[in-house]
Design a protein around this nucleic acid. Structure first.
Lengths: 206, 206
DNA sequence: CGCCCTACCTACCAGTAGGTAGCCAGTTAG
DNA sequence: CTAACTGGCTACCTACTGGTAGGTAGGGCG
């Protein structure tokens, strides 16, 4: 906390605002977050915040584009790996877990956006993600055609995986309560990742 | 629509308010929904709405208790079935799909509540669901001990299933865009249910 | 020195939120 | 017939929202 809220020296005010906004929007949603909340978290007044961003919506859009660029980068790297067969699927799953564990706030914002069907964000969310989705579909389809994976509908498969993986991070507070444990500790994330990998392997690899 | 917003004869105003509130809260969240929105949807003014419910929070809590009682009833019936082995697991999955397909608004409210870690609702969410969770855990553990299912960590397994199934309904608007199709048509729900059943069967049954 | 610019501030705006007070029509009970 | 209750309404309150206007301290620079 101390190196986040006070060190104006290392991070610019603009970056501090983006960080705080990310956290607030993830925690309480777009409507539940006021510009006063964000400004107070940074230690400035609302008008000063609006000096750096023209409007609440623009700030949110900037936060969301930060998210998309980080996700696209992280996932494309894993998905373009030269591995094949189950190795590649496992690599992508583990890369996703690493990525999401590093940025759980992003996951929660994405979830909220999916629930709101992209009302707040100006960018075309599904347009951004469809290339990833299509390439994953193509991969699974070709691997199933080659007989490396059991036959499943590739689109349904990816949606199932998307839900299974993202939920662990987006619903972490709820899972905490259900398990009486911290879902997002490194060892619990690793355990759950291992489980998901083993589960999907059992379902896909004959 | 017509038999929902106007038929004061068949449904009491109180019930009409609960229905409209359910829909609004599911669609735009607690903070994103104003009492004016709900009242307008029912065709009355805000003060008249507050004649039936003492406050926004009380209204929300009532909606949520409606949800919980319906879910508990629906799922407990399926889970207490005398079936065993994979048959019972499939029965519960299909019951869940039926239940969620019938009440997608409930799913979205539950998702929002999990994201907000139960800030708005007075009831103890995880306390309500823990019995279901524990009994599901016990079931899978005993089936795995008996060698009917492949060995997985039961808690992780259920969280994975919870995420995989709920997401299809909570993120339906987003999935619509991704697939260029309506996720919640009866045939698409059935297709996805069949996929999830086959997928989990492949993962669990040796 | 004056000039501009950045980054902050206080004070204010209009609009809207949730909630309350009190009035009024219709129905029902005594 | 009247009293009480129900379920609406208008009018109002306070608190807070996103956003703007205008002012100021201080740094860099010709």
């Amino acid at each position: 906390m101390s190196d986040e809220s006070e060190e104006s020296s290392s991070k610019s005010t603009r970056e501090l605002i983006l960080d705080e906004a990310l956290h607030c929007f993830a925690d309480r949603g777009y409507e539940g977050t006021s510009l006063n909340d964000i400004a107070a978290g940074v230690g400035i007044r609302r008008p000063s915040l609006l000096h750096h961003f023209p409007s609440k919506e623009a700030l949110y859009t900037d936060v969301f584009e930060m998210l998309l660029s980080e996700w696209l980068e992280g996932l494309e790297v894993a998905m373009s790996s030269p591995a094949s067969g189950w190795d590649k699927a496992e690599l992508v799953i583990r890369a996703g877990f690493d990525l999401f564990a590093r940025t759980p706030d992003y996951v929660r914002i994405m979830r909220r956006e999916a629930l709101d069907s992209g009302v707040h964000v100006g960018v075309d969310l599904s347009g951004f993600l469809r290339p990833l989705f299509d390439s994953a579909c193509a991969y699974f389809t070709s691997e199933m055609d080659a007989g490396h994976f059991r036959r499943h509908n590739a689109q349904h498969l990816i949606i199932t995986g998307y839900g299974a993986i993202l939920t662990y991070f987006s619903d972490a507070p709820f899972i905490d309560e259900l398990l009486n444990d911290q879902a997002l500790t490194p060892e619990n994330v690793r355990d759950h990742c291992d489980h998901v990998v083993a589960f999907f392997r059992a379902a896909l690899v004959a």
